[in-house]
Design a protein around this nucleic acid. Structure first.
Lengths: 345, 345
DNA sequence: GCACATTTATGAAACGATTCACTCGCAATC
DNA sequence: GATTGCGAGTGAATCGTTTCATAAATGTGC
């Protein structure tokens, strides 16, 4: 039996009523006589009728579906954001489909096209690249969009965390702990987050009176555990006079990979290398050496983003775009504690 | 400008052709004259026309969309499975929407309804409960379904890993390491996996000649890090004469939570408590004490499941249901090494 | 110059639902 | 008894697209 083998027409025939009446039973049961309604309802269950939402929304206009396109569904940061999104979306009567661009511009484009063609009601997106034509097209086509963990300017709703401040927190912490040679591990720098976190760290270095070249950038091709391990190998390969005594990683996955590699190479953390991550994912606290990290209000980011989208969906054209920004927070743990100045926080 | 403000009709009008021709340009460009095609194409881009897939599939029948309904999108096990799913689905020309039931039967039902109403082409699902009416309805309505990480009998396609064998591997490892009091941490036992892993461990205990009550079950309400911490508190609360010397956790999240709590309470692992997890997620190896775990071929599970679904989608009614099962593998690390019999593997 | 095939374009029907202007009884009102 | 009002149900139009039978224009071979 094929799906949709039963349509309103079949139901109407079996119940001996018109299609209009079946539709009324479905959508305004109060306008139908008790007798008739029961007859229609039993016909529905007898035929296993399932309303075809596709056809319904063709006629009735927009659905209550939104898409959430994330950069990396395997990153606990995004899964926590997604939880917040789901929660707020449900409250607003929206259902969420999660899509994973996996850092690929191609897949991002494909998913955006798909969501557009499916006529979802709105899109939450953490774009790989803010400058793509495809992304810019969405608001022009009238599709509500909220940027998550990104800022796109006054023409976009966005919910983000101030990454420059986060980078500054991390950098200051390391400078104040007495480190003179610091590595920044992160990339690709097409990612705005990576650039901003680096900029914040650089500012901290300047403010701490260290020379610009106190900061070595170790570029990675992605924000993953595997790339973190690779960065670790490069770090260990440096002559020890040049080797940084602390590393600020653009996210916790990198930091965990780096930490793993240090353990493998028997470089003690934090004594020989202090490590600081970003995001404060749940696993950071449980790492071999508990990870110092910059915490972001992940759940809140998701909730707020979904609420903004719901607002935009319901307000229509008179909606005013808003840019919300939260502040990050430093969480100090063993991976930096007492690395240079024993006893300091 | 509302979405879909431009329809084929508008394009046709602007290009001075009929709607049929526009449709031909879209679907069979070779049947259209060069001249006309160019005119239509420029009208399309001028109006920012986006084909309405909803309407298209109403007429043309089935889409190429599938849904993947997971138990817990925040569990790295599932995100790795999802990666495999995506990869194979893409290869088969299918797009995947990820849905998260978050262990809730209610949300599972809502998402299944949603997927059904959206007329997706097939569904991959890790059900909260195999016995629900809603799940049973899907094949009856002709919707291809593949169970992931579950077995549903001969009427279902499924891809799973033998959990009983996995539990047995873990149990045997602990028994052979000389442990006499073992805790099983897991739940709720409505989850088939939890039951099977426990059963495997129990068999290992019997085979090892230990009494049945050598195994204490510490029930949890979910397979999360937080629940693992809670289980740890209960474990520490036991009088030390009764306290197990090893814990087998139904997944790695529980194990990581348990490990965290042991560290906090200063119970040395593995000396006072050996811990073994399940899934071998990426973070297991990076834990404070690297975690012994039962590895499942996560990526392969996802790939195979999507391939089975694609086959079912394309074969139609003459499709034969198949049940595939992989074997798990024990990965021994520090969290159990040398706990009772120093030096043993 | 004729018959015939080929290429190109047309326009109406169909997909499955909703919506809306109507009709049909029937009771209440004056 | 005529009029009004109301609740219940009808059926055609509609959403945006594809498909298909058909028509018109063009090319080919003799």
């Amino acid at each position: 039996m094929a799906i949709g083998s039963a349509s309103v027409k079949d139901v109407a025939a079996l119940a001996g009523v018109s299609v209009g009446t079946v539709s009324n039973v479905l959508n305004r049961p109060d306008r139908v006589g008790r007798e008739t309604r029961l007859r229609v309802e039993s016909a529905i269950s007898e035929l296993g009728f399932v309303r075809n939402e596709v056809a319904r929304h063709l006629r009735a206009g927009g659905s209550r579906l939104i898409g959430f396109l994330v950069l990396d569904a395997a990153n606990p940061f995004f899964t926590d954001v997604a939880r917040g999104v789901e929660e707020a979306a449900r409250a607003a009567g929206l259902a969420v489909f999660l899509c994973n661009s996996d850092n690929s511009e191609l897949r991002e484009r494909e998913y955006l096209d798909l969501l557009l063609e499916q006529r979802v009601r709105g899109v939450l997106v953490t774009p790989v690249n803010l400058e793509t034509e495809r992304l810019a097209a969405l608001p022009r086509l009238g599709l509500p969009v909220v940027l998550v963990d990104r800022i796109g300017g006054a023409d976009w709703c966005s919910v983000s965390v101030d990454d420059e401040v986060g980078g500054h927190l991390a950098g200051t912490h390391l400078v104040e702990s007495g480190h003179q040679r610091i590595a920044f591990v992160g990339g690709p720098d097409s990612l705005g987050q990576v650039r901003d976190r680096l900029a914040g760290a650089q500012r901290a270095i300047r403010e701490g009176g260290l020379p610009e070249d106190a900061l070595t950038v170790i570029a990675t091709s992605a924000l993953t555990v595997a790339e973190g391990r690779r960065a670790g190998q490069r770090l260990v390969g440096l002559p020890s006079a040049q080797r940084p005594t602390a590393a600020f990683c653009a996210n916790d996955l990198l930091a965990l990979g780096l930490l793993q590699e240090m353990t493998r190479q028997e470089v003690p953390v934090p004594e020989e290398l202090a490590i600081i991550g970003y995001d404060d994912i749940e696993f950071a606290a449980a790492a071999a050496v508990p990870l110092t990290s910059v915490r972001q209000p992940r759940h809140l980011i998701g909730r707020t983003a979904a609420e903004l989208l719901a607002e935009e969906v319901d307000a229509g054209p008179e909606h005013q775009h808003r840019q919300l920004q939260y502040l990050p927070e430093l969480v100090v743990r063993g991976s930096t504690r007492g690395s240079r100045r024993p006893g300091s926080v």
